[in-house]
Protein backbone atom coordinates (compact mmCIF):
# COMPACT_ATOMS: atom_id res chain seq x y z
CA UNK A 1 0.00 0.00 0.00
CA UNK A 2 2.86 2.27 0.89
CA UNK A 3 4.48 1.76 -2.47
CA UNK A 4 1.16 2.39 -4.16
CA UNK A 5 0.89 5.76 -2.42
CA UNK A 6 4.41 6.70 -3.29
CA UNK A 7 3.71 6.02 -6.93
CA UNK A 8 0.52 8.06 -6.84
CA UNK A 9 2.24 10.96 -5.15
CA UNK A 10 5.05 11.02 -7.69
CA UNK A 11 2.60 10.81 -10.55
CA UNK A 12 0.50 13.61 -9.11
CA UNK A 13 3.44 15.87 -8.35
CA UNK A 14 4.96 15.30 -11.75
CA UNK A 15 1.70 16.07 -13.43
CA UNK A 16 1.13 19.17 -11.32
CA UNK A 17 4.45 20.57 -12.33
CA UNK A 18 3.71 19.64 -15.91
CA UNK A 19 0.44 21.49 -15.65
CA UNK A 20 2.19 24.63 -14.48
CA UNK A 21 4.74 24.13 -17.20
CA UNK A 22 1.94 23.96 -19.69
CA UNK A 23 0.63 27.28 -18.41
CA UNK A 24 -2.97 27.78 -19.33
CA UNK A 25 -3.33 24.14 -20.41
CA UNK A 26 -3.74 23.01 -16.81
CA UNK A 27 -6.38 20.47 -17.77
CA UNK A 28 -4.06 17.48 -18.07
CA UNK A 29 -5.49 14.12 -19.07
CA UNK A 30 -3.91 11.42 -16.90
CA UNK A 31 -6.86 9.11 -16.51
CA UNK A 32 -6.69 7.00 -19.64
CA UNK A 33 -6.76 3.21 -19.92
CA UNK A 34 -3.24 3.31 -21.37
CA UNK A 35 -1.77 5.26 -18.47
CA UNK A 36 -3.74 3.12 -16.02
CA UNK A 37 -2.33 -0.09 -17.53
CA UNK A 38 1.26 1.16 -17.38
CA UNK A 39 0.74 2.49 -13.88
CA UNK A 40 -0.67 -0.85 -12.70
CA UNK A 41 2.27 -2.70 -14.21
CA UNK A 42 4.77 -0.36 -12.52
CA UNK A 43 3.04 -0.59 -9.18
CA UNK A 44 3.17 -4.36 -9.32
CA UNK A 45 6.88 -4.28 -10.10
CA UNK A 46 7.69 -1.72 -7.43
CA UNK A 47 7.47 -4.34 -4.68
CA UNK A 48 10.35 -6.19 -6.34
CA UNK A 49 12.36 -3.06 -7.08
CA UNK A 50 12.08 -1.44 -3.64
CA UNK A 51 14.61 -3.77 -1.91
CA UNK A 52 17.00 -3.21 -4.82
CA UNK A 53 16.75 0.56 -4.40
CA UNK A 54 17.33 0.10 -0.67
CA UNK A 55 20.42 -2.08 -1.17
CA UNK A 56 21.84 0.37 -3.68
CA UNK A 57 21.93 -2.26 -6.41
CA UNK A 58 19.57 -0.17 -8.52
CA UNK A 59 19.53 3.61 -8.64
CA UNK A 60 17.42 6.35 -10.22
CA UNK A 61 19.01 7.98 -13.23
CA UNK A 62 18.85 11.65 -14.09
CA UNK A 63 16.90 10.87 -17.27
CA UNK A 64 13.92 9.27 -15.56
CA UNK A 65 15.06 5.66 -15.80
CA UNK A 66 16.45 3.12 -13.36
CA UNK A 67 19.85 1.46 -13.68
CA UNK A 68 21.72 -1.50 -12.22
CA UNK A 69 24.44 0.64 -10.61
CA UNK A 70 26.07 -1.90 -8.28
CA UNK A 71 25.88 -5.39 -9.75
CA UNK A 72 28.00 -6.82 -6.93
CA UNK A 73 25.03 -6.24 -4.60
CA UNK A 74 23.08 -8.84 -6.60
CA UNK A 75 24.17 -12.50 -6.45
CA UNK A 76 25.03 -13.94 -9.88
CA UNK A 77 22.03 -16.28 -10.13
CA UNK A 78 19.65 -13.33 -9.63
CA UNK A 79 21.44 -10.93 -11.90
CA UNK A 80 19.55 -11.89 -15.05
CA UNK A 81 16.21 -11.46 -13.28
CA UNK A 82 17.21 -8.08 -11.83
CA UNK A 83 18.48 -6.96 -15.19
CA UNK A 84 15.17 -8.03 -16.72
CA UNK A 85 13.31 -6.12 -14.03
CA UNK A 86 15.31 -2.97 -14.76
CA UNK A 87 14.73 -3.33 -18.51
CA UNK A 88 10.98 -3.87 -18.04
CA UNK A 89 10.75 -0.88 -15.68
CA UNK A 90 12.51 1.37 -18.19
CA UNK A 91 10.23 0.14 -20.94
CA UNK A 92 7.19 1.01 -18.83
CA UNK A 93 8.63 4.38 -17.89
CA UNK A 94 9.23 5.25 -21.54
CA UNK A 95 5.68 4.10 -22.34
CA UNK A 96 4.30 6.19 -19.48
CA UNK A 97 6.00 9.38 -20.64
CA UNK A 98 4.92 8.74 -24.22
CA UNK A 99 1.36 7.87 -23.24
CA UNK A 100 0.87 10.99 -21.11
CA UNK A 101 2.11 13.11 -24.00
CA UNK A 102 -0.12 11.23 -26.43
CA UNK A 103 -3.21 11.33 -24.19
CA UNK A 104 -2.91 15.11 -24.15
CA UNK A 105 -2.36 15.35 -27.89
CA UNK A 106 1.09 16.86 -27.24
CA UNK A 107 3.59 14.22 -28.37
CA UNK A 108 6.28 16.92 -28.38
CA UNK A 109 6.03 17.10 -24.59
CA UNK A 110 7.49 13.63 -24.10
CA UNK A 111 10.99 14.93 -23.30
CA UNK A 112 9.68 17.49 -20.81
CA UNK A 113 7.47 14.90 -19.17
CA UNK A 114 10.45 12.59 -18.81
CA UNK A 115 12.56 15.36 -17.25
CA UNK A 116 9.81 16.34 -14.85
CA UNK A 117 9.32 12.74 -13.79
CA UNK A 118 13.09 12.22 -13.43
CA UNK A 119 13.25 15.06 -10.92
CA UNK A 120 10.15 13.90 -9.07
CA UNK A 121 11.26 10.29 -8.75
CA UNK A 122 14.51 11.56 -7.21
CA UNK A 123 12.77 14.11 -4.94
CA UNK A 124 10.49 11.43 -3.58
CA UNK A 125 13.14 8.70 -3.25
CA UNK A 126 13.47 7.24 0.23
CA UNK A 127 16.54 7.86 2.38
CA UNK A 128 19.31 5.46 1.45
CA UNK A 129 18.34 5.17 -2.20
CA UNK A 130 20.83 6.10 -4.87
CA UNK A 131 20.18 8.65 -7.60
CA UNK A 132 22.18 10.28 -10.34
CA UNK A 133 23.06 13.94 -9.91
CA UNK A 134 22.77 16.41 -12.77
CA UNK A 135 26.48 15.80 -13.45
CA UNK A 136 25.87 12.05 -13.75
CA UNK A 137 27.52 10.97 -10.50
CA UNK A 138 25.77 8.63 -8.07
CA UNK A 139 24.66 10.09 -4.76
CA UNK A 140 22.85 8.61 -1.79
CA UNK A 141 19.76 10.20 -0.31
Amino acid sequence: MKTFRLFEIVLLLALLSLASHAGAQANLEINTPGIAAIQASMQKRHAELAPLYASGAVGLTRDGNVQLRDPSAVPLPQRAAVNGLVAAENQDRAALYREIARANNRPEWEGDIRNTFAQRWIDRAQPGWYYQTAAGAWARK
Binding site: P71, L76, N83
Partner: peptide, 11 residues
Protein backbone atom coordinates in the same frame (compact mmCIF):
# COMPACT_ATOMS: atom_id res chain seq x y z
CA UNK B 1 35.94 -11.91 -13.39
CA UNK B 2 33.48 -9.14 -14.05
CA UNK B 3 32.96 -6.21 -16.34
CA UNK B 4 31.87 -2.81 -15.08
CA UNK B 5 28.19 -3.39 -15.76
CA UNK B 6 28.28 -6.74 -13.95
CA UNK B 7 26.50 -8.36 -16.85
CA UNK B 8 29.46 -10.58 -17.75
CA UNK B 9 30.83 -12.07 -14.57
CA UNK B 10 32.07 -15.31 -13.05
CA UNK B 11 32.68 -16.37 -9.48
Amino acid sequence: FADKSGLRAGE
